[in-house]
């Protein structure tokens, strides 16, 4: 069973529909046992980091996520919360990746909104996806490049649009809204 972590953050309907189009049923849940026993877990996110972390704590999920052993996919704010800290509201994240999430400078329009090309793709998540493929992004904060980076994009300089640390996979873009390339990425995650 595939579990989508439900903590009241973001548009999970589109994600569920995208998985349905791939023939996969998902369980939207905030129950620790169900999340622990799932084959795979998706950690979505949208909105402000501070309120998202509060909600995770409210459901008692902040301690659980970093201990999961199965493949976990963090999407958008979900990926940012994998990090140790974010400048957005000066909030502590889950600390899976030892990075600080930063705000884009005023040299560019903020939020970045739209389709950006992704490059230097590494690993199974990007199997069959061409370097330069476009993915849909909406965000004001970004994860700087690091050893965990498995794809980057350019906006106000090069930054991390995908991360991998052990069984934790993070994507800044919305695969559920990124047409064929996004659908392929979800398929790759399901095949892990």
């Amino acid at each position: 069973m595939l579990a989508i972590i439900d903590y009241g953050a973001g548009n999970t309907k589109s994600l569920q529909f995208a998985l349905e189009r791939l023939g996969v049923n998902s369980l939207l849940t905030s129950d620790a046992d169900q999340i622990n026993s799932a084959d795979k877990v998706i950690f979505p996110g949208q909105g402000a980091a501070g309120s998202a972390m509060q909600k995770l704590k409210h459901f008692g999920l902040d301690q659980l996520i970093s201990k999961l052993q199965q493949p976990v996919l963090g999407i958008c704010l979900g990926m940012q919360l994998f990090c140790e800290h974010t400048e957005e509201g000066d909030v502590q994240g889950l600390g899976i990746v030892k990075k600080t999430v930063k705000r884009f400078s005023t040299e560019v329009k903020v939020p970045q909104m739209g389709w950006n090309s992704i490059h230097n793709l590494k690993g199974e998540l990007f199997e069959g996806i061409t370097d330069g493929a476009y993915m849909y992004l909406v965000h004001s904060y970004f994860v700087p490049n690091s050893t965990e980076t498995v794809a980057n994009a350019n906006y106000d300089g090069s930054y991390s649009v995908a991360l991998q640390k052990d069984n934790f996979y993070g994507v800044q873009f919305h695969p559920e809204k990124s047409s064929k390339a996004g659908s392929r990425l979800l398929q790759n995650f399901l095949a892990l």
Binding site: S14, F17, A18, R21, K177, S178, S179
Partner: peptide, 11 residues
């Protein structure tokens, strides 16, 4: 909106 979200994979 629900029907559109089920059918398309762009924002």
């Amino acid at each position: 909106v629900l029907k559109v979200a089920a059918a398309i994979d762009i924002p």
